[in-house]
Design a binder for these strands. Structure first.
Lengths: 214, 214, 214, 214
DNA sequence: CATGAATGAGCTTTCATTCAT
DNA sequence: AATGAATGAAAGCTCATTCAT
């Protein structure tokens, strides 16, 4: 009995602690699918398996929920970004390939592409969010890629290219794909190149395009 | 007096005929900036210099306006797309370069990137729109690029690559840029590579990556 | 036809101009009857013969409406207050009697007593309102009465009394009655002294109480 | 341990028995300060140092709590009223003075004025409450005062005045003050006559006004 | 044709109330 | 007994849409 009580208490406690994450997950799904304004909080709550009112026990209002969705959604990217910065060895080409593949693994097939989509869609209404994204994610990834490219050029592995441009060119195909994927989740999805082939073609073309040797 | 009346009538007539286009332009701006749901029709009307009621003389409701915005916004792309399909000569590389540059000229610095942004943002709520876009724009551009790549490979100019992937890789940087630009219109815009350098680096890297010769 | 048009337009115009006042009147009634928080805006709108939405064409939100009700409700009092300050002659007693009777005429049987009731009820939630009332109404009336009492004392007509106290004592019975009347509007109303007798007994007692001669 | 338990039990018991009163006190404060509708039960519970749920162990719902607040708040007045009715001697003037002073002592500086304020504010929504108040308090006090005045007149001490009116005139300044004081608790409080002077001026004026001799 | 006052469905948010722990 | 997480009815407010002028 006592045991049971404790168990049940634990269950409740666990739910209470899990709720915010569950709600955020539900909200992410719907915000990405329908956009911020078109998402009804009742639906978010329902998808998380709770009632409207419960949502307000954890988030002050819709905007706070949105911000939290972004923040929580960005966290794994930041964490992984830190990891990418870790020790690496070998030539710049393998380094670059490694980074791209890690990034790809992170977003491909996951809902993570939803975050950029969300930010792009709502940047007009939430400039702070866009700003935060740029300053914390974009800039860091850019710096990382910039370093790799720079050293590749210095070592004579890569041609002398405009680094700023290449940084964008490395990321664009990855972002574009994941954004597209998220947008088309419900509707037409066909006609696109196979995921594996896609990323490897990207890397292949990129490295060949960058290579100094010919 | 009569004369004046006629003049006014003419002006009115002109305005009257221009109205739909003006309203669509205003709507495009706002839809792109704020999203479909967050855009108020009063604001659209105001931006077009007319009253709320007038809008309804030309568009049955908000959704029709949205569809019209997409349709009209896509038109130039389709037209230009047709032009791209016209007679072309020379090697596949120059052909590809030409196509990319034409595309770039079309979107760079214009509000045209707003259309893809809009479609991406609203695809979840308007699957027909997304479908229409894919079937009429994406597919056609893809077919065109596919032909060029195919012939380039056949002529031995390009390496044997996965054409479907490369098609996407050609477009992603162009789309990504224009979408991003539109999103950040109001907020932070800095930190990006110079536009001219960007597109030429893209072409440069791409062609080098594709080139069979080494 | 044209004539008709103009007429109808006039009617519309007239309504548009009358609306705020109508809404304020309806709101005053209900705020006084039920209190601010317990009054539903739908009911206010309904009582004014319009729909919920219309209310928002004229007042930004419930609080603004409340403030406007107070402001408009106080205006006649202020105006009448100014009038009271006008030229007056005769002995202090008749002067005081005149002022009390004018004040009484203003509030007795009208909804004007609702304003003090409202302010008393909501002072806790709208301190600015209470402050405004004190500073603009109470203080002015107090000053006026103070002057009359002062001069009455100086002329030897009135006994030497504590003026500040008497000022309150002059007003309390008037305020109390009108507040009570408003509160009991719907429920029990019986058992109270006749209105005419009441005010004259007040004046009678007061003047006799003040009079220096005996 | 056991001992401790017993102690805790006793404390608990004491608290348990005090709970309703504590909750009522907390509720009175808040109802007076903010009004019935604008008072949240969580806040009442919090002010009483218990949780929301506990409140429901003692009161069926918000309205019951309100009624209880009124009932409990009225009790001291009733009790004191009874006391006032007790044996009294001397002339009518001292009798009246005594009653007024006792009443004043009861309400001046205490939160007791809150009850009338509450009743006035909520009479529209709780006619039964108003009715109860009138029938049990007002009527009794009125009867008491009436008797004193009547006998004063009969004994030739007081002039022949309209008793019903005078009854109200005796109470109005006392009620008005205590109500005002409660309303302004949080906001502006200045500008009022000194409490002692106020009540004595009231008595002074009243008795002089009533006195038959001149 | 153009206007903008009016409407009311729909969404966000609050809070009295319940009930598992 | 006491708690506070959960609920959902209800109220404030917005805005697409209508229609008299």
């Amino acid at each position: 009995m006592k045991n049971n009580d404790t168990n049940e208490h634990r269950v409740r406690q666990r739910r209470k602690e899990a709720r915010p994450a569950e709600l955020i997950a539900a909200a992410l799904d719907l915000f990405v699918e329908r956009g911020f304004a078109a998402t009804k909080l009742v639906d978010v709550a329902a998808r998380a398996g709770v009632s409207k009112g419960t949502l307000y026990l954890y988030f002050a209002d819709k905007e706070v929920l949105f911000l939290e969705v972004i923040k929580q959604g960005l966290m794994p990217v930041v964490v992984e970004g830190e990891a990418m910065l870790g020790p690496h060895s070998g030539d710049s080409a393998s380094l670059l390939r490694g980074l791209i593949l890690r990034w790809w693994t992170l977003v491909n097939g996951t809902k993570l592409g939803g975050i950029p989509k969300l930010i792009i869609s709502e940047a007009g209404n939430f400039p702070e969010v866009a700003q935060y994204f740029v300053e914390n994610i974009t800039r860091r990834v850019d710096a990382l890629l910039g370093k790799v490219l720079q050293s590749g050029i210095e070592k004579g592995e890569f041609r002398k290219v405009d680094i700023a441009s290449v940084i964008e060119l490395v990321g664009a195909p990855i972002l574009m794909r994941s954004i597209w994927e998220c947008s088309m989740a419900t509707s037409c999805r066909g006609g696109k190149a196979d995921s594996e082939r896609y990323i490897h073609t990207h890397i292949d073309l990129l490295l060949k395009g960058l290579s100094a040797g010919d």
